[in-house]
Design a protein around this nucleic acid. Structure first.
Lengths: 195, 195
DNA sequence: TTGATTTCTTAACCTAGATTATTGGGGCCG
DNA sequence: CGGCCCCAATAATCTAGGTTAAGAAATCAA
């Protein structure tokens, strides 16, 4: 098993795209090193500078933060085909942790690379579309956190990420929703009882 | 007073950038029609397709949604130099309203234009940076909504958007924070009393 | 398989913020 | 100038979800 690499930006930019057996539409937009991460591996810690971008070829990663009271809040999950990263400014220390919920196969790239222009037009467009989509997803998330009760946020999660649901413990879903595991258990029970 | 225009994407792409007296770093990245919007004007309604992107040259806009119970939730404010839009997918109906909190001068452009490639490299980079920054801001917002109590979210707002604070009624700040005006009034009072 | 460690559920109680209602202060327009 | 409407503040009451605790079920390691 290999470790998350510690390379300079320049080194990263020189890395070649490595074709793997796993194909995915935007794989060619990526250049990075492939690493195998056992379940539970922490890829990135809170406070690290020069944080990376992780593309999940196989498995499941998550990003989360730990607040002042020591409580964990999951910001996002990333399964096959997804990209995950802390979105802090490039020079600022990362605010979040990223670790592996399942044993995973990950391609890791440097953040600065996102600004590089030496990509074919088609791929630049693809990336732009993905960024815009991420903004949309976050917009929705903010709106739901502000306006929807826990049970609705849960149902929305089930509909939106059906492939994630069976792969993570329920307490992680609760954490993503912004509530405690006990509260999720409760609202689920009440909801089930009401029909 | 002029109205928000209703033009086809093609028409928009043909519009020329109009120099105005107001200068701003990324103004050149914009092509659109300039409109004058009186206070209270609704630029975009929930449900409209082909929603636009608004660049604020002067004044103050906000985007918000109205939930099932008829309550208003402010998603963001945009003052001079900011860009505001609903981030729904281009073909989907908009989820939010956009209106003018102050009488404003706005440049309106078509969403599809975001994908166009005929911009100088420098400006493309600038746009990308802005998108990444927006993602960062949203990440922070989600995190705060999940982990910080109302009073802290309020303090964070004061620090982050000091120029907005004196320009909007307090109930709008409360709405942005995801709480009621009464609750904001309460926590402020408690906080002040505690020192 | 068995013991140990998470995870889920339930339940009793607590608290931040919602709801509803009332008051007073401005700002704005006739 | 006076009336009106919007806004902020306070207070009483209510509720969704948090906290704490404990037992049952599932998962994992040896």
């Amino acid at each position: 098993m290999s470790e998350a690499p510690r390379k300079s930006p320049r080194e990263f930019l020189e890395l070649q795209d490595r074709q793997s057996g796993i194909e995915h539409p935007d794989h060619r937009a990526w250049r990075g090193t492939e690493i195998k991460v056992p379940k539970g591996t922490i890829l990135q810690q809170n406070g690290e500078t020069a944080s990376k971008v992780y593309y999940v070829k196989k498995g499941l990663l998550r990003s989360y933060l730990i607040d002042r009271k020591g409580k964990e809040h999951i910001f996002m999950f990333a399964s096959e085909g997804w990209t995950i990263a802390d979105s802090s400014p490039p020079d600022a220390p990362a605010e979040m942790f990223i670790d592996a919920v399942e044993p995973s196969l990950v391609e890791v790239s440097d953040k600065l690379f996102q600004l590089e222009a030496d990509l074919p037009e088609e791929l630049r467009k693809l990336r732009l579309t993905k960024l815009l989509n991420r903004i949309y997803v976050l917009q929705k998330r903010v709106i739901m956190l502000m306006s929807a009760p826990a049970i609705e946020r849960y149902e929305h999660f089930l509909e939106t990420y059906p492939e994630i649901v069976p792969r993570v413990p329920q307490r992680m879903i609760a954490s993503y929703l912004g509530i405690t595991p006990e509260a999720l258990s409760k609202v689920k029970g009440e909801y089930a009882r009401r029909r």
